[in-house]
Design a protein around this nucleic acid. Sequence first.
DNA 1: GCACGAGATGTAAACGTTTTCCATTACCCT
DNA 2: AGGGTAATGGAAAACGTTTACATCTCGTGC
Lengths: 347, 347
Amino acid sequence: MPRSPAPTSADIRKVAQEAGVSIATVSRVLNNPQRVSAATRERVLEAAARLGYRPNPLGQRLRKGRAETVGVVIPAPQGRFADSFFLELLAGLGEGLSGAGLDLLVTTSPPGPQELASYQRLVEGKRVDGLVLARTRQRDERILYLLEHKVPFVVHGRSDLIHEPFPYLDIDGERGFRQAAQHLIALGHRAVAFIGAPHELNFAQHRLAGYRRALEEAGLPLRREWVLEGDLSEESGYRLTLALLDLPRPPTAILCANDLMALGALRALRERGLKAGQEVSVIGYDDIPQAHYTDPPLSTLHQPFREMGRRLVEMLLARLAGTPAEELQEIWVPELILRGSDGPPQS
Amino acid sequence: MPRSPAPTSADIRKVAQEAGVSIATVSRVLNNPQRVSAATRERVLEAAARLGYRPNPLGQRLRKGRAETVGVVIPAPQGRFADSFFLELLAGLGEGLSGAGLDLLVTTSPPGPQELASYQRLVEGKRVDGLVLARTRQRDERILYLLEHKVPFVVHGRSDLIHEPFPYLDIDGERGFRQAAQHLIALGHRAVAFIGAPHELNFAQHRLAGYRRALEEAGLPLRREWVLEGDLSEESGYRLTLALLDLPRPPTAILCANDLMALGALRALRERGLKAGQEVSVIGYDDIPQAHYTDPPLSTLHQPFREMGRRLVEMLLARLAGTPAEELQEIWVPELILRGSDGPPQS
DNA sequence: GCACGAGATGTAAACGTTTTCCATTACCCT
DNA sequence: AGGGTAATGGAAAACGTTTACATCTCGTGC
């Protein structure tokens, strides 16, 4: 009676025995095939296949001194759901990593000081070889920590108050919002408001700067009461838009630092009986799937999160291979997508 | 000049030397403290602290033959974002796991046959000790696969066509939708429609059954044209609601199998100039954060995803410790939250 | 006074790899 | 023929733990 292969129990020793070679040779066949003659290579591969051999990652990792794992800490706020853009990024990271045979270790943590503890656990506990960060702050303590501990990492976004070089991939938010504001101004708007992100977030500054620059270039004054700071939630977009509409001189166009807030803005307009894209224009940022389905469809700046995730993996692998940080800094150009929530001001 | 402790390089041998004991004793102090005398225990702990020693998980894992890791595969569809409820579940899982010192390995995969490959990689590659599944189908191949390979796992949701026992935690969707439908009927609705989930999803059946049962119990006929199947996206809720409104006899109330579709329903109503909660009632399922902020606020059935994540970890740990699957099956009762999108039918 | 058990510690083997040396063989060139 | 070199494969030492087993030291009961 033929024994069915017990695929779970084959180790390198069994394969070596089966192929009539030493375990060193088996290992070489798998890691360094050209170091071994074609004939024995064939023999070993056959034996391995016959036994259903898969190298045990635990042994490999100990021997190599690497965890073969990349870590991500997702900021998950207490009261509300984390932005689903993280899932999108995760998907991109996962695609890239599985290709490279690396694992993705995910932790969630409420944003704040406790966050750093998660990083410590991953780094000082030697659980990961590298990290991916997102949602950077202007002077991001996580980056400082990782730089200090010399842990390889890549960043989605920049951290403008840190001058030591580190690898990052960012979208040019200034350019994006400058373009968006220019577009609105070209349509004839003179009263363009801005609902920004929490000011400690790095991209908040860029997007604001793009807005200011466009106004400046057009010779329009910057009115303080038209520049508000939201918390990126739909609800805050809603609330702040109502506040804008209640001003003595309400704006005719609103730039929102993300789509979620733009959705809130659309809701506020609707509630006030104002037609978005006609009476008041709205432009968001991110291009979340929902943006297709609002009424009117939301004009926004596209961020290709999944692609960015894939690229971040490539950069991290390069970093792990020794590429200097300076050579791993990319800024992508966002794409302004006009769908209908923008339009010329009325009369 | 005092050398600062090089925290990254201390291994168990160094600690042993520093404390003047053997490495076995150091290990015992950490894993089995009562096996060693108070005096030496103290000495070892001090030495460990002085050197900043942290056991290297790679060594532990190899020795223990466990990856100390739990895996999750998130279905991330190509075109659109994955449901953010997964992030919420992830947060709950993470909280539970970090308490237990386990890592969370996350993979994403488009739903479908390729999904199983991800599971194989995790399981046959010995990368995880256990798994968490979610978004189950009626006869879920992933569960069959894991049962066959005798891998410990727990499930968020059930899989009704699988009769072998396995550990799960589910919300009683039938009861939830029965209650929701009863509520609408009690308000006076006689034309209650149902926008369901893809029928292969296990919970789709339960929610539908609850709806049918409530109608039956009230002696109301089940009209086929009022029972539709969506894909859980906002857009499909929108589209199907329009279809319902175009019927010769449109419903006065709509039950949606998730909140995202309910949001779409609200949008469709608004577009048709119908007041939700007055002219047409809508009830969703999940209680996503957005449900607070719709107009009117969305009535829905609450699912405590984060808590469920935490509980799932406890169950998985129990499972890993040998608790039989039969003792790890829980069904929680959902809570109907009335916010305003439901109301009596007009006239 | 002595065997005995309990308690505390040390020794060494294991976990499954990769990789550094060596040893052997074969080959080529002079 | 002899010596250098390349190709090939094996032996053994890591990697950092945990743990079975052996050893040693006491106190204790006889």
